[in-house]
């Protein structure tokens, strides 16, 4: 190998270390900064629903770590808000995304399909804070004045659906998040559905299957892995979303939602809102607790990603082949 080649190889190797370095930096910062909070708050951090930094409290030491007298940090409200709003988003967004993918690949003529594809991809590119702004000025008034009262009177016998309309809250966050994950689910599902081998589809048609049967028995099993991957990617985005949720969540504190319309808060949105006020705590415990929230969020999103990888590795891929063989 010539000198220039060796130098080139060396430079690119070093550059590719930057990704490792950045991830290492993030993990170390989160671990180091959240350590005091982990020591002091322990398991109560995950189960408690009271987040009270007690900024007027006296400076004391617990297990040798400085904190304020009477401060309690429970992430329960944020954890609940994050998980439930993402669950609602999946509930609304995944069927819509798969429906759009079916429309693009099976229903629409090519011209319409191309136009709708472009619009859906545009949806993916819109900044999240713009989603939040639209939610604030269009969606929330609509929810407060029309949708939530209608739902509450229609489902007056269902607990959780018969609460007081509020506007900013769980339902609004779920809807905004679902709009943000639809393009991810739709465009990846479309791509994998288009990859279904044509001879399988033709074989199905030759056997006299209807379009739905071809979709159900051939295309969907073939695309399953990709669709699951897309869904999990969308979940990852919903869990970590900040600005859109922060504008429409109602920023609940110290109270779990008692209906679908109640205000909530999510880990990511609360982190974005609170770091500057956290510096008024002289013990540094507030800041540390926020970093522990970050660590919790990182663990959740990484776990979601690992599960996606495992599912894909376990090989749903062979499913399409078995269907054909039988």
């Amino acid at each position: 190998m010539r000198h220039a080649d060796r130098a080139y190889r060396y430079v690119t190797t070093v550059a590719s270390g930057s990704a490792l370095l950045f991830l290492l930096m993030i993990v170390i910062v989160l671990a180091v900064k959240s350590y005091p909070s982990i020591v002091v708050n322990g398991l109560k951090f995950f189960t408690g629903i009271t987040w009270n930094p007690s900024l007027n409290g006296e400076l004391i030491r617990v297990n040798g770590v400085p904190t304020l007298q009477g401060a309690t940090y429970g992430a329960g409200v944020f954890l609940f808000g994050t998980l439930v709003s993402s669950a609602i988003a999946m509930l609304l967004g995944v069927p819509a995304g798969i429906g759009i993918a079916l429309f693009l690949t099976q229903v629409a003529p090519q011209r319409v399909s191309r136009m709708v594809s472009f619009l859906v991809e545009l949806l993916a590119g819109i900044p999240s804070v713009v989603y939040g702004f639209w939610g604030l000025v269009v969606l929330l008034p609509l929810l407060l004045q029309v949708i939530e009262p209608a739902m509450a009177s229609l489902f007056f016998w269902v607990p959780g659906l018969n609460g007081q309309p509020y506007g900013a809250g769980l339902l609004g966050s779920g809807i905004i998040l679902s709009l943000m994950i639809v393009p991810i689910v739709a465009s990846i599902s479309r791509d994998v559905m288009l990859q279904t081998p044509l001879e399988l589809i033709e074989g199905g048609a030759a056997l006299g299957l209807t379009k739905w049967e071809i979709t159900r028995k051939i295309i969907l099993p073939y695309a399953k892995t990709g669709v699951i991957g897309a869904v999990i990617l969308g979940l990852g985005r919903a869990l970590g979303e900040v600005m859109a949720v922060a504008l429409v969540s109602g920023s609940a504190l110290n109270a779990l939602p008692n209906s679908l319309y109640s205000p909530i808060n999510t880990i990511a949105a609360f982190m974005a809102e609170s770091l500057d006020s956290a510096f008024t705590d002289p013990s540094g415990m507030y800041v540390s607790a926020l970093f522990e929230l970050g660590l919790l969020l990182l663990v959740i999103t990484l776990a979601v990603n690992f599960i996606a990888r495992l599912l894909i590795k376990q090989g749903f891929v062979s499913k399409a082949e078995t269907v054909i063989k039988v």
Binding site: L23, I26, G240, V242, A272, L290, G294, L298, T301
Partner: peptide
């Protein structure tokens, strides 16, 4: 993995470092 890290966590890490 880095592409999946929520952006607010990047903000916190960038702030501290």
């Amino acid at each position: 993995v880095l592409a999946g890290v929520p952006s607010i966590i990047l903000g916190y890490a960038g702030f501290f470092v």
